[in-house]
Nucleic acid binder design. Structure first.
Lengths: 214, 214
DNA sequence: TGCAAACATGAGGGTTACTCATGTTATATG
DNA sequence: CATATAACATGAGTAACCCTCATGTTTGCA
């Protein structure tokens, strides 16, 4: 990812200065078109190859308008990423909400992993964003924060199942299990489908053994 | 990472056309200086912020000489990465060579993880390369190939310990365990040291449960 | 109706990776 | 030793990119 400007400021970690939020009907629609164009381009070529000029052209706006609402290229990717995280967070909360015993956790967790796996397989944009994540410090931090938030739902369940366990240990375990899940997903979608399926199953087994005990 | 040229060729995945390998004493020394300069710059600012002009300047060569031996920026990172992989592969082979029973595997695996963890903590260049790995398809493939090769050492041990198990399943398991190890490392070094240590311990436990059985 | 704020525009600035024509040094060959 | 050829060295120049900003247009409101 390009970062001629970011590199000058703070090793690429700094979040760019915010821009005006669209307040008129017209500009809200235009911003939607920009995001849609960016999403399509990322799906086609990846966020690295996405050109700001191309985004503007495909959205039917000028390059200047793009920068009216997004401080830099990464902000567009960030905006798309935030939508996904908000969406999936709700999904996770729903899936783990009513889990009461070990068997329930097994079921819910397994389903959750399947949903995520299918999501990763189906959404090239999500895939690209969470891959590129590693190279972009701001995005990486968003992902880590997101991961911790998601792990919290797991922690809530674990505390119910293991009331006597050390809370810090549960927290760390949930965090690791979650992060490894994302790593397993990234791996699974980058190999052929058959091996990917097997990898996901093994991940499930490992994770559940840790979560509900041997 | 910049890839104005790479993007034009093949979505950034293509490996750039090779350049002349240094055949004279003088140029071999110069190439070494280039790699050393690149390594230092990556350690200081990360490979993304590394400028080709700066590499050339610090190595005491012209920008043209740099491109005489490296087809593009990524090739320099790749060359450094290859050195690390070769080094660590030998280390892994040695550690797992004489493992004969479950207890031996536990010991050897635990030590291996510790070595890797310390290596990641101590070597900013390695850290940067394996983080940026996700964004660069060619590097990602190098890492995957490397990971499979490393997993093979594990497979050899597993086949001795579980002679009746399905070889394909063992292969997949070893591959996943290894990749998750790298993910755990990346995670562990990106949080504070205390939590990182805990994460590594939990990973060990999860991995060994899968490798040697409940 | 008029005014201020929000919005729209695209030529151009600045930075970067990489090329290539030209010059220099090493090595092979008679 | 002379000379030809291949390897190496150079750095100004090219193209591509991200992003700015001066200028013009539209919208909301008193």
């Amino acid at each position: 990812m390009d970062d001629k400007v970011a590199a000058k400021t703070d090793q690429g970690a700094a979040i760019a200065s915010p821009r005006r939020a669209p307040s008129q009907q017209r500009s809200r629609e235009r911003v939607e078109r920009m995001l849609a164009a960016a999403s399509a381009l990322i799906a086609e070529q990846g966020s690295d190859a996405m050109r700001m000029g191309e985004v503007a052209e495909r959205a039917g706006v000028s390059i200047g308008s793009l920068y009216q609402f997004f401080p830099d290229k990464r902000a567009i990717v960030w905006a798309l990423a935030e939508r996904y995280t908000a969406e999936s967070q709700a999904c996770i909360a729903a899936a783990l909400k009513d889990v009461g015993d070990a068997e329930g956790l097994k079921q819910a967790f397994s389903e959750l992993v399947d949903i995520y796996y299918r999501l990763f397989l189906a959404e090239p944009v999500m895939r690209d964003i969470w891959s590129g994540t590693q190279a972009d410090k701001a995005l990486r931090e968003l992902e880590l924060a997101d991961s911790r938030a998601n792990a919290e739902f797991l922690v809530a369940v674990l505390k119910r199942l293991h009331p006597l366990a050390d809370p810090v240990a549960l927290e760390t375990t949930a965090f690791l299990v979650w992060q490894m899940g994302e790593a397993a997903m990234r791996l699974a979608i980058s190999v052929d489908r058959e091996e990917g399926d097997r990898l996901v199953e093994i991940y499930k087994r490992m994770a559940l053994r840790e979560l509900v005990g041997g």
